[in-house]
Design a protein around this nucleic acid. Structure first.
Lengths: 151, 151
DNA sequence: TACAATGGTTGCGTTATACAACTATATCGC
DNA sequence: GCGATATAGTTGTATAACGCAACCATTGTA
């Protein structure tokens, strides 16, 4: 290949590291959830956690925060409903939409999952100075903000 | 929810940022490849790039570096063969395996893709000091190394 | 020489995904 | 007030990625 390309090092490419890390973290946290009888993905956790924090939200809002098509969210919520973790409450003001909220079981699931997630994050970051954690998170946030603007 | 969980902030959770960034980067680079008539994923680029750098490798080696099942790789390679970018060369020493190598077209594709990837990475990191880039990459690498050990 | 290990493929089922088209409801402009 | 338009959500359908189980061919080993 030409000299133009010969200096490109995949090992120093941030994209590869971001992808690899995302894959491994997603896999590991799902495994830990599963070992506590919670067959849920990291994405599912993200939805449940936000429902807890922000109260019931519409599916379109979930779609927006997950950056997925609303039809994808319909089916993800279907899955969580089937597992009994969330419920769709019709909204009397505007009968077009639902408010998706946690059930008791969903809240219970979070009681298990949140400590797992916290412990996991502390574990993978245990050797890393606080300063560097902060820089890493800030850098990732800057990259994703820039990419969102780009869309 | 209990006080135990109330201090958990998803916004400061590295997992969410890693995932989000990976998703956005993967999507954007695929879009850029596509706009140059190269309907390939970031993963495909990863394979092609390594073939260029390391010369022909076996499918099991690819599976290992991509952290995927070998059957998944069989089908990914099938796709790249169909696109004319790689070829399977039988290995006379040991007739069980192939060496997968770049074709001329595969090399040409890299000539287009490598500058795209390089420009993309520079672009998303443009506002970030070199020191912080380095810390971010190192941190991600430490996390993924730790997770690999954990398996 | 029988048996285990290795590289690769195929069959199959699962999951995530989005687009197009649709229903139902709400809102806006005139 | 009414017709056009926008919005929330669902369903049909297709695609892609993925991995497990089972398999074949070949090689290495006891």
């Amino acid at each position: 290949m030409s000299e133009l390309n010969s200096d490109f090092q995949l090992e120093e490419a941030i994209g590869m590291h971001v992808n690899r890390t995302a894959f491994l973290m997603t896999e590991e946290i799902a495994k830990r959830f599963a070992s506590h009888d919670l067959p849920l993905s990291a994405q599912d956790f993200g939805i449940l956690f936000r429902l807890q924090k922000q109260g019931p939200v519409t599916q379109v809002e979930i779609a927006s925060m997950m950056m997925r098509d609303k039809t994808t969210i319909t089916r993800r919520i279907d899955g969580l409903v089937k597992k009994g973790l969330v419920e769709r409450k019709p909204c009397p003001d505007d009968r077009r939409y639902f408010r998706v909220g946690l059930t008791k079981a969903g809240q219970q699931a979070l009681v298990v999952m949140i400590p797992l997630v916290r412990a996991f994050q502390q574990e993978v970051l245990s050797d890393i100075p606080d300063e560097e954690k902060a820089i890493t998170i800030r850098t990732l946030k800057q990259i994703s903000d820039k990419l969102i603007k780009l869309k």
